[in-house]
Structure formats: structure tokens, C-alpha cells
Amino acid sequence: MTVALYEFPLCEKVRNYLRLEQLFHQLDEVKFATTEFQYLYFFEVLFDLIELIERLDLRTDFVRDIDAQEKNLVYWSQHPDIDNSALEVALQTLHRLTHEIKLNKKLGSGIREEKFLNTIRQRFAIPGGATSFDLPSLFCWLKQPEDVKKQQLAAWREHLQVVDKSIQMLMSFLRERGRFTPAMANNGFYQGNVEDKIELIRVKCDNTKGYYPVLSGNKYRYGIKFMTLFPEAGSTGAVADNLDFEIACC
């Protein structure tokens, strides 16, 4: 059985964290680019990241969430079975992140000062805009030696490191708040209550049966409905069978 993991945020902040996390994963997929089209994909993802970071007040969210995590770790330090060495490493990492964030009045500001990126960024918003006649400077850059391009990719990526590290750390803490437990969707539907501080619902299910979960709800309760990937004509696509799955509330 192939198991698929679906994650559903219950607040706008976590929704933005997940989007940023995915974009960083996509960026890492092309950090070893070798073809011109792979480099173009790097720029597309990079500019999506920059745009999202510009629109969000990440600095405030990061400082607040990291402070909350530090308090949680200090609380857990009183537990007799806690791994003190691992706890100390986590606390030091959080302290470093807080220091880096506070040094940056505006996260990612360094990359917005990169002249070359600024000259090509606007064209990437146009479908098919990254052509040699639209962006001769980019076409020239693509013809530079590989080591030169790799160094510049690494330098641009470095401007966003504090955001990437913060997202990795905070999402790791968030996911660790919930443990997967077995559940049953009667007639393809499952309902649960939203307890205090739950910000993320994670669902594991069989990915070979041709169905997937969708989540809806409010701050009090949520519902998970399983839908068929290729519904028959005239069908709503909702699964009518009882389905076993696993769920974690984080």
C-alpha cells in the first residue's frame, strides 16, 4: 500500500508557512541545475518566494512563535525523562534564529537589492516572458560558466536562509505536537472537534484506491470528506464506503 500524507492548515499563518516551505523545497530541487530551463525554473520559484515574503509580516509571526516554542521547551525541561542535550541544542537554535530575525528589520531585504534580479523579475510575471528577446541580460547570464552561476544561486539563496531555517524549525515543532491515530470515515466522512491551539490537521490514507481527503470547518469543528479522483459522469465524486485512515491534530 502506498500511503499519502495530506496536511490541512486551520489558520492563515500556518497556510503561509506551508506555502513557503513548499517553495523552499522546490528551490532546493533545482539548486543543482544544469540546463537553461532548470535555471529558469529556479528564477520562477525564487520570485514567487520573494513576492510571498514581501506580502507577509513574517518577522512578527516568527518572533512570537519562536518565543512560544522557547517557553514550551523550558517547561519540558522540568520533565525527568527529557533529553537535556537535545533540549539545549533546540534552545540554542531558537536563540540564534531570534537573534538573526531581530537583526533583519525586513526579512529578505538583501535579495531585493540585487540589481540583476530586479531587472528580470517583472518579465517573469508575463507568460513566456523569459525569452532571449525580452531578457537579453538573462540570456547572457545563462551562457556564463557553470561555477559562476552556481555561486550566484548560492548567494541569492543565502539571503533567504533565515526565513528557510525559521520555517523548518517552526513546522517541525508544530508537526511534533500531534501523533497519528487510527480513524474511520463512515460513508466517506469524518468529523472532529477543534481543540485549543490546533493549527494543522494531518491525514494519512491509502493512495492506491483513487480517493483523496478534503477538509472544511470552522474554529469549533471540522469535517473530512473523501472524494474519488475520477468520478463517474453525474456523480458528486464523494466516496460512499467506510474508509480507514490515520489522523494527527497538531
Rank of each mutant, 00 (worst) to 15 (best):
M1P: 06
L5Y: 00
L10M: 13
L18K: 05
L18Y: 08
R19L: 14
R19N: 07
L20Q: 07
H25N: 11
D28M: 06
E44F: 03
F47W: 08
L49H: 10
I50N: 04
E51I: 06
L52T: 09
E54I: 02
D61H: 14
D61G: 02
F62K: 03
R64P: 00
I66W: 06
E70D: 08
N72C: 00
N72H: 05
L73W: 02
S77Q: 10
H79P: 06
D81Y: 09
N84C: 04
A86D: 03
N104I: 02
T119S: 15
I120W: 11
G128I: 08
F133D: 12
D134H: 14
L138Q: 01
L138P: 05
C140I: 10
C140W: 11
C140H: 11
W141Q: 08
Q144P: 03
K149N: 08
K149L: 15
Q152C: 01
W156P: 05
W156L: 15
E158D: 14
L170W: 04
S172Y: 05
S172R: 09
G178T: 02
R179T: 13
M184K: 15
A185I: 03
N187F: 11
G188A: 09
Q191L: 03
N193K: 12
V194G: 01
D196F: 02
K197R: 12
K197W: 01
K197L: 01
E199N: 11
R202P: 02
V203L: 10
N207V: 06
K209S: 12
Y212I: 09
N218E: 11
Y222E: 04
G223C: 05
F230D: 07
A240S: 12
N242T: 15
I247G: 07
I247K: 03
C249G: 01
C249W: 00
